[in-house]
Simulated assay, not measured.
Amino acid sequence: MREPDAGTFRKPREDVVVSVCFSELAAGPATFAAIRDLAVRLDGAYRFREIILVVDDTQRAGFLDLVREVPNTRLFVVRRGTEYYDRRVIAAEEAIGDLVILGNLEEIAALDVLAFLDFAEAENAVTMAFRPARRPFKRLLAWPFIALGKLAGFNVDPSEFQSIAVPRTLLNLLLAHDEPRLALRFPPRDPRLPREWFRTAVNVEGRTAFTGIGRRLALLQTLLVYLTPTLLTLVAVSSGVLTLVGLAYAGWIVGAVLLVDSLAPGWLTTNAMLAVSAVFMGFSTLGLSLGLQHLLKQQRRLKADLVPEEVNRIDLFQQVAFDLNVVLESEAPAPPAEG
């Protein structure tokens, strides 16, 4: 006999708002059925919840019936081709819950989502789903990303589950990170962001080592770009060393001219050109690297092209206030005038 779900007989909680976000969905009966099932499970455990869907603008019509059918489902459309990591940032920024899941629909359908949320709340940590049994070949392919991630300060392992559960306070810290696209997928190595593993034995079908090659290449590019300040520092140091070597070489040439009675024909001009080239390359590369570092420090993140269009607007705060019979200060009647 199958044991009942952990949250089957508990009373729906009213002290917390839950947001579950999906940033990669395909319109189809299987997707719609999984979202309906998730809504039923959440409604049995939480009185206030929202489901956020971020889809291509070409799929807008396919999801309209679903958002009308499932209450408190918010639909955001973005331009076709918007990167997966950018979509996760959009979903996280729009979520209003005290507990937020950034998930993959197939993984969430296989996980015990209520236990996942309870674990994240109890540990007050960025919680990642973890499956101990993994193929060695898949682990081997992930090593270049793991090594680059460590250099960049992230816990990168593309073979891990994509779903994370985060309390609101920690989600704000992830969004405030210099690179929130990476931080929301691979939590940074930061003592302010404790990380825990929600261990599960389930395996999601269709997840192979070669799934999402384009996304892996985009991840590799993002990691290399994030390492730009470190690489520029190395370039600056090496350029400074090259400049000093060129200057020392020029001093040696001057000493040779002053101390040696007879030099071989062409020796002076050849070595002088070498010294000048070394000093010039060192100074120019050093200047360029320092200038780029200065620009990177001054640059602010521009999010103008990450603003999505919300198809259906819901006021979950107003619903919470109405259900709990709370009078907002802005709606409270004015006190009677004296005299």
Rank of each mutant, 00 (worst) to 15 (best):
L174T: 02
G240R: 03
R300G: 08
M128N: 09
E310V: 13
F186L: 03
S239P: 05
A95Q: 10
N72T: 01
R10K: 10
L231R: 02
E338N: 13
T243R: 12
P4H: 12
V89I: 15
A256V: 11
E329H: 14
V237P: 00
R300Y: 07
G153R: 07
F22W: 05
G246N: 03
F130S: 10
D65L: 09
L66S: 09
A152D: 12
E106Q: 13
L114F: 07
A147I: 13
R189S: 10
S239W: 01
P132K: 06
K11D: 15
G81Y: 13
D98W: 09
A218M: 07
V126I: 07
R13A: 05
V89K: 09
K297D: 01
V225T: 13
D157R: 02
M281H: 07
Y46W: 06
L302R: 00
S239I: 03
A27N: 12
L184E: 05
I108F: 01
T285D: 07
V40T: 08
V237Y: 01
G214N: 06
V126S: 06
N271M: 12
L258K: 10
R301N: 13
G206M: 06
R131Y: 05
L290I: 06
R47C: 09
A236Y: 02
P4A: 11
F48I: 10
F210Y: 14
L193R: 02
L234R: 11
A332R: 15
T31R: 03
V20A: 10
L295A: 14
L111F: 07
T208D: 05
T269D: 11
R36V: 01
L151Y: 13
L141A: 04
N172C: 03
K11C: 14
F22D: 02
R207E: 12
V307P: 00
R68S: 11
A30K: 06
E50T: 12
E3C: 13
V89W: 01
R134L: 03
V241M: 03
E309I: 05
G153T: 12
L105F: 08
T58N: 08
A91K: 04
V276A: 14
L290N: 03
D112S: 14
A201K: 11
L232M: 10
T222Q: 00
V235T: 00
F322A: 15
P12F: 14
Q221M: 08
E310P: 09
A34P: 04
